[in-house]
Write a protein that binds this DNA or RNA. Structure first.
Length: 522
RNA sequence: CGCGGGGUAGAGCAGUCUGGUAGCUCGUCGGGCUCAUAACCCGAAGGUCAGGAGUUCAAAUCUCCUCCCCGCCA
């Protein structure tokens, strides 16, 4: 069965921000993990390009909406490339094929009697693309999230009969694994319990959108259109836009990874739409937390936004991925702290892991003709490092299955710490000064090199670059599942203790991870 | 108003369900080692577990009240 996972389709109102990068990075780690386990993966990301807000932003910039979308979505594409995101698809909702898919989907919903005409009257926030409650009240209300004036709307729209799915949605969200993390489930439950109301799925007088077939003057509400992008994305690059065909490629999605702000759209509206069209429901909706910076909300007005492109440029892929995945519990809010960022990168990656490989490789080369030394007992399952490796392996797998990147990272690190400790306890550099200890030292170094290899293999989903660099220094073939020439041996097999071949020639070691020296603040 | 999440060493978190010496990572300080990227290993300091009351032989953990932060409803 195909493992389909999605990031949100990012709204191209502005250039990519760190939050989008965070989601995408996490999905990338998850996608790589699933591929390494041997799953067929479709990793979907993309851009949501319709709606009034985009139309206005484009106008303000003196561009056509299409030109604006082309420019911004190109920024996303470039950014993901630079981050080496392993997405299989990058869907744009302005893709002509998407129109067809939306139309076909809508036809099913309409045939099912779930499309009604209704009058919508109320205060509208263009930034949210949402009607706000308590109409008629106050003469000039503001949007609570955007602090911007609301606009009065009075229009006849098409409505989706969400109310009809009350019971099914209640059942769905009551399922233990559907909404993750579990702590967010209550919020949605409360919302649903208040009674689901039909919501409008079209807008009138809004040219920048997909026309609703059979309803002159109406275009689809951005969310209705955007969510369906997940299905359009399943089409192979040159395939005909056929809903059934798209679905056959990997629907339902195993998981939608999103920010917590759009949980309701994914856990309530979207499943109801799918039910109406008679389609299968996604397995999980994971709403991760938000990032703050040094304790403060990031925002243009505060001037403290971290630009993911700058961050990549200055710090590199491994460092940022490590910090975000290793230190911030996925699902909870997290704070980006520059000091801690460089502390962790330097400690964990450069010192604990990088230096472990460096020191061990140096000793092996010096005393054993540049080779992986011969083993006597080191390959046995009862070896202390074999036991540590097994603990790390099972913890990493359990954690990644649960999207707990943090504890996966910690378990990997723990193995490197054990190996460093083992080295200090055994002190092969002292032993070597005595007579007849060669075999013993060889055995010790073998075990530590093997532990380093396992660290590198375990690291592959989280830090593919660092993993590759480590494996090359261990005379191994890198595992990068995204590139050609990677090691085809199953990942799980490669995690078995004792895989390193004695006698393999070790290349001259050079630091696999440079220390992060941030002279200026980010 | 209501609802949800949270408040544990300087920082970030675990532990709370299933009461019983308060643990991890980073930072700080001291020691060890010299194979290595001024690295690695060991040890120490640092906590009235938000506050109060209660249940109990025993509470970070269970009950009630209060305060503070974040979010949902908006």
């Amino acid at each position: 069965m195909t493992y389909t996972l999605t990031t949100p389709l990012y709204y191209v109102n502005d250039k990519p921000h760190l939050g989008s990068a965070y989601t995408t990075l996490a999905c990338d780690a998850l996608a790589r993990y699933q591929r390494l386990k041997g799953e067929a993966v479709i990793f979907i990301t993309g851009c949501d390009e319709h709606g009034q807000k985009i139309q206005r932003t484009a106008e303000a910039a003196g561009l056509s909406p299409q030109a604006h979308c082309d420019a911004v979505s190109a920024q996303y594409r470039d950014l993901w490339e630079r981050w080496q995101i392993s997405n299989d698809r990058l869907i744009r909702t302005t893709d002509p094929r998407h129109r067809q898919i939306v139309a076909q989907f809508f036809a099913r919903v309409e045939a099912n009697g779930d499309v009604l005409e209704g009058r919508q009257q109320g205060w509208y926030c263009v930034a949210c693309e949402e009607f706000k409650d308590d109409p008629a009240e106050a003469t000039a209300p503001h949007c609570p999230t955007h602090q911007r004036p609301l606009e009065w709307r009075d229009e006849v729209n098409l409505f989706f009969r969400l109310s009809r799915y009350q019971q099914q949605i209640e059942q769905l969200i009551a399922q233990p694994g559907f909404i993750q993390p579990a702590s967010r489930r209550r919020e949605v439950e409360n919302f649903v319990k208040q009674g689901l109301r039909d919501f409008s799925i079209s807008r009138v007088n809004l040219p920048w959108g997909i026309p609703v077939p059979g309803h002159e003057g109406h275009t689809f509400y951005v969310w209705f259109d955007a969510l369906l992008g997940y299905i359009t994305a399943l089409l192979e690059p040159n395939e005909e836009p056929d809903l059934a065909l798209a679905l056959s490629h990997g629907w339902p999605a195993s998981v939608h990874v999103i920010g917590k702000d759009i949980l309701r759209f994914h856990a309530v509206y979207w499943p109801a739409m799918l039910l109406s069209a008679g389609l299968e429901l996604p397995g999980m909706v994971f709403g991760h937390g938000f990032l703050t910076r040094e304790g403060q909300k990031m925002g243009k007005s505060l001037g403290n936004v971290l630009d993911p492109a700058d961050l990549l440029e200055r710090c590199g892929r491994d460092a940022v991925r490590w910090y975000l995945l290793r230190d911030i519990p996925f699902g909870e809010d997290g704070d980006f702290q520059q000091q801690r960022f460089s502390d962790l990168v330097n400690n964990d990656l450069a010192n604990t892991i990088g230096n472990l490989l460096n020191r061990t490789s140096s000793m092996a080369r010096r005393w054993f003709e540049d080779c992986v030394p011969a083993r006597t007992t080191a390959a046995e399952a009862s070896h202390p490092l074999a036991i540590a490796a097994e603990t790390a392996r099972s913890t990493v797998i359990g954690s990644l299955d649960a999207l707990d990147f943090r504890s996966a990272a910690e378990a990997t690190l723990q193995l490197a710490i054990s190996a460093n400790g083992f080295l200090n306890d055994q002190a092969p550099w002292s032993l070597m000064k005595q007579e007849g200890t060669q075999a013993q030292v060889a055995d010790q170094l073998y075990a530590v090199l093997e532990a380093a290899r396992i660290v590198a293999v375990l690291m592959a989903p989280l830090l593919p670059d660092l993993s590759s660099r480590m494996l090359l220094q261990l005379a191994q073939v890198p595992l990068d599942s995204g590139s050609a020439g990677y090691n085809p041996r199953p990942w799980l097999e490669q995690l078995a203790w004792g895989g390193l071949e004695p006698g393999a020639v070790l290349p001259e070691p050079s630091p696999v991870m440079a220390r992060l020296e941030l002279d200026a603040p980010l």
